[in-house]
């Protein structure tokens, strides 16, 4: 998802002075990417909508804390990411509320085990209704801390530096998580498309 065409000049000064029409412009400019991040992270529309609303309520409350070191979109992503991770934690009563939101776990990427070459299959076949469903499920099944990095980088298309800034991670951390996420996703898709290729061979 690119946001290049929806990057209007939002005046931080006007926002801080309580200019409501400027705030409405901010909301219209950035609500869609925030909503889709929540939807991908939480997997349901109601939670995504809650994250969306809370993100802008928090933004309004904390405008004075926005220092302009990152873009306003990165700052909003930072708020939204925290909201989404807290929502995920609330859904798991067994988790101690005092645990850090991010469990860390930046171990090495698992080496690949699937070596089926499905990369040359036609795109309409890869992204058939069933294929798209498999892709969505594979993204949804990534561990949270990897999924958030993956969504911000590979779907919302933030730079490594902006992902690091949004999630309070080092750039090295982001790169490790991104690699793990991409390899896990590749592994799952390879398994899925490999099965499909085998079935087609048997049937054909």
């Amino acid at each position: 998802m690119t946001t290049e065409n929806t990057m209007p000049d939002i005046s931080i000064e006007a926002l801080r002075q309580g200019d409501r029409s400027e705030f409405a412009r901010l909301v219209d400019a950035y609500s869609a990417p925030i909503y889709h991040l929540g939807l991908r992270m939480l997997g349901n529309e109601q939670d995504a909508e809650d994250v969306l609303q809370n993100t802008f309520i928090n933004a309004l409350t904390h405008l004075h804390g926005f220092e302009g070191r990152s873009s306003i979109l990165t700052w909003l992503y930072r708020i939204a990411a925290n909201e989404a991770l807290m929502t995920l934690r609330r859904g798991r009563p067994e988790v101690n509320i005092d645990d850090p939101v991010d469990s860390g776990d930046d171990g090495e990427a698992l080496p690949p085990t699937q070596f089926v070459d499905w990369s040359a299959l036609p795109e309409d076949e890869l992204l058939s209704a069933e294929g798209k469903q498999a892709l969505d499920a594979a993204i949804q099944s990534l561990p949270e801390n990897l999924r958030m990095v993956f969504l911000l980088r590979d779907i919302q298309e933030l730079s490594i530096r902006d992902v690091a800034s949004a999630l309070d991670l080092t750039e090295a951390n982001v790169k490790v998580r991104l690699l793990r996420a991409r390899l896990l996703l590749r592994e799952r898709l390879s398994f899925y498309y490999g099965e499909r290729m085998r079935k087609e061979k048997t049937n054909g």
Binding site: S119, L126, L127, L135, D154, I155, R182, L183, L185, R186
Partner: peptide
């Protein structure tokens, strides 16, 4: 296949 995975995510 990793490159294709990322492509598919973008397209989809």
């Amino acid at each position: 296949t990793t490159r294709k995975t990322i492509d598919l995510v973008h397209v989809s």
